[in-house]
Computed example of a mutant assay.
Amino acid sequence: MVDYKRSEPFRHLLVTPVEVQYQCTVNQVAFTRVGKIIDISPSGISLLVPELLKTEELQSPIGLSFCLDTKLLETAGEVRWKKYHAEGIQYGVELEENEAFEQLIIEELKLRRKKEIQSQKQ
């Protein structure tokens, strides 16, 4: 993996990480695991997992299922970078390009952020 930086200005650091199920297929065997999204933008996420992904897992697309606010979001992406984190391993995942899905992420983030602000006021 090479250094990779998303070149978009809109990235949201989640106050409370979002649980995500991620799947990949290696040698025709599907794996499903659970991790956390710690930041998100319309084109990518930072995925936090408890253990290193195997080389074969990193070379295949990863399916992702998560809920930012009210809707179940499902997409695929490719791992672009990794770094060690206090709670596990953090991977940068570039999401497949889809304008409608990117707009859905933005809408869900707006709703989520409003709720975060309201709960901080209380």
Rank of each mutant, 00 (worst) to 15 (best):
M1R: 05
V2A: 13
V2G: 14
Y4M: 05
Y4G: 11
P9V: 06
H12K: 13
L13Y: 12
L14Y: 03
T16R: 08
V18T: 00
E19S: 06
E19W: 04
Q21T: 04
N27F: 08
A30Q: 10
A30P: 09
V34F: 05
V34P: 04
K36C: 00
I38R: 15
I40Q: 01
I40N: 02
I40Y: 03
S41A: 14
S43W: 00
S43N: 05
G44D: 00
G44C: 05
I45G: 02
S46K: 08
L47H: 08
V49T: 04
P50I: 03
P50H: 01
K54S: 15
K54A: 13
K54V: 12
T55P: 08
E56S: 14
Q59A: 09
S60G: 13
I62Y: 02
C67Q: 11
L73Y: 08
L73R: 10
A76M: 12
V79S: 09
V79R: 04
K82M: 13
Y84D: 07
H85M: 11
A86S: 07
E87F: 01
G88M: 02
Q90R: 14
Y91R: 09
E96Y: 03
E97Q: 11
N98C: 14
N98P: 15
F101L: 13
E102P: 15
L111K: 12
R113W: 07
I117C: 04
K121P: 10
Q122R: 10
